[in-house]
Design a protein around this nucleic acid. Structure first.
Lengths: 195, 195, 195, 195
DNA sequence: GCTTAATCGAGACGGTACGTCGCGTCTTGCA
DNA sequence: TGCAAGACGCGACGTACCGTCTCGATTAAGC
């Protein structure tokens, strides 16, 4: 992938690539996912449709690339408590899911991914991959410190947190509050009973 | 909607209505949500497109009516423990979300609802309404019995459970296991720490 | 064809039909055959592309219908001599081939007809049919009067006259002179030797 | 064109030229004129598109060069009679027009020539030039021998013969018979009346 | 032997048109 | 008024070519 691949013909123009990504972001913000057409993206980018289909196989891949390349950077959360760590990780999810362009795209984008078997298979390995890595590290540390006993179904917890944020914010349209991540993290670590 | 609307001319034919609903279910199952067009539904139902648009304002409403009218019947769960009650309620969600036609339609249907401000506003009041009523009852009983102390953010918990099931099963495509509802209910009531 | 066919749905709108025909004539005149696209015709006519494809299977059929429906009207030429009759019939061809829109369309149109086996088969039966009927009548009268002896290869003579006019005027771009039809008719009836 | 153009850099590769010509012939035969694209020719020839556009300005010129370079060789017909000479010259036209690749290309090629003012101007001077020279010689000999009296509109006669062959064989798709050239020559020299 | 410059295959580029499909509305005749 | 049928304007789809351009590599001729 990252190897040189030694292309033979004219190399692809990075400015065309960038213009397409930029146009995609803009149009998703202005007209939403369903309201954004490949034709319109090409037109806005000053590019031909071929230039798009040469790089991406369809709208879902393009939009995903344009909006969700932000790799989770920064150190893994280490607040001292499991709930605190998870809250911080959840905060990342909340930020990612509520960033304007991403929020506008998410429901439609996920629907398209879910509908295509090939894309569906990539959902976990690409969409949640970064968050998952960090979560595993958090759980291992908590297990070492004795705060956590027993196995934890990592994927299920991750799906729960992501699903909760997506459903609450993305679908239901509830406003994003500062406490949301904390509330969710508390529920997931301590449950609702002893609040 | 439910008003009598005493019509003056020829009354609507119930068989036409039923044929449309039936065709919708079939086509969603065969071709998925995005792959099902109003044109195709009308054709399969032996109906005109007008007969559809006279009753529903678009595909999302029609599909919702066709697939999610199953009102939560039966008594509210009462297993003796909060976790048990929630597990049973979650089991209902799992069943509803993983019923073949519903599973095929959900991602696309929710995306369409989320994209339209009018439909988006109806999401909670219609889509989650039945489950919410039952959940409130469960929480009240648990509060009375002393098992539950403090306020519970009902909508957030409901969104969490629904979001978890939707994300895990509907989007990620994880197989539905018998323990899924129990696992989720346990996490939500006791947290992951002391498993 | 001309029978009622008892259509069941909404009947086709004659104004749409006429607008398409009109737009086709205009655009052929303005931009030639190759420079006229179905897309542009639809746009100019204020119609959708479907409205065109519903009636014609492609550009060749549409252009043919738009430009060559002028049935050869009027009585069959009867000037007293075979050469005179043929001259008059040839004059019809010249007029038809040199009418501005037809002249602009002919080379490309014939090329498209020639390239498609289905259309190719229709060339003689539709394109030359009217002229052929009149020519047969002329030859029969000349045979009766004794001016013509022996069999005449009608199709070959018709192809010769049409080919001559098409090649001379349509392809070579020679100006249309008043004597052209007479010259051709003379050659075909008397030959060049004894001029 | 024919000037030496004393180049300074790398000279053009004759094998590239030949490969392009060969690929053009093949593809015209396989897919017809309209179905043959510059892109496909380059690909089949193992050449770049630039190598084609460096030598020809477009498909019409390339195809003309590839298929119609066969200069009329051999002595001018001299059979003893005008009709015989013309029959032989017409036979050349028939052969040229009915050679498989040429027949496949002719209608589309002529349409493209006719549509472009620049190419249109070259039609007579290049396409019919060889035949015209021979025809003039035939007519002069016939005038000298007294078989032909009066002026003959050479171009019109040539257009008539070429048009007749093109229309009859190329467009109408009539089979090429051995007598075709004779029949046409007879009509043009003696007319149809006294057959 | 070095430089210069045109050529080579490959393929990306912005465009334009293709023929198809679905949308939501409309217009028929019949019930 | 409802109904089946289907035409309507619109706009997007993904593909195919157009003729131009940009790569690195090659191949002579002029210095």
């Amino acid at each position: 992938m990252t190897t040189t691949e030694q292309a033979s013909g004219r190399p692809r123009d990075r400015r065309t690539h960038d213009a397409i990504i930029r146009a995609t972001e803009e149009l998703i913000l202005e007209h939403g996912y369903a309201g954004t057409s490949i034709t319109a993206i090409a037109s806005r980018a000053g590019a031909g449709k071929d230039a798009i289909y040469r790089r991406w196989s369809g709208k879902p891949e393009l939009v995903y690339d344009a909006l969700f390349t932000a790799t989770d950077v920064g150190p893994v959360p280490n607040t001292g408590t499991l709930a605190g760590d998870i809250a911080q990780l959840t905060e990342n999810l909340v930020e990612e899911f509520s960033e304007p362009a991403a929020a506008a795209a998410l429901p439609g984008l996920l629907a398209d991914f879910a509908a295509d078997p090939v894309l569906r298979a990539r959902l976990r390995s690409t969409f949640l991959a970064p968050a998952r890595g960090r979560m595993v590290e958090i759980f291992e540390r908590a297990a070492t410190s004795g705060e956590l006993t027993g196995d934890v179904p990592v994927d299920l917890i991750l799906d729960t947190l992501a699903g909760a944020v997506f459903f609450h914010v993305g679908l239901m349209g509830e406003p994003v509050t500062a406490e949301l991540a904390n509330e969710l993290a508390y529920v997931v670590t301590h449950g609702i009973g002893t609040r």
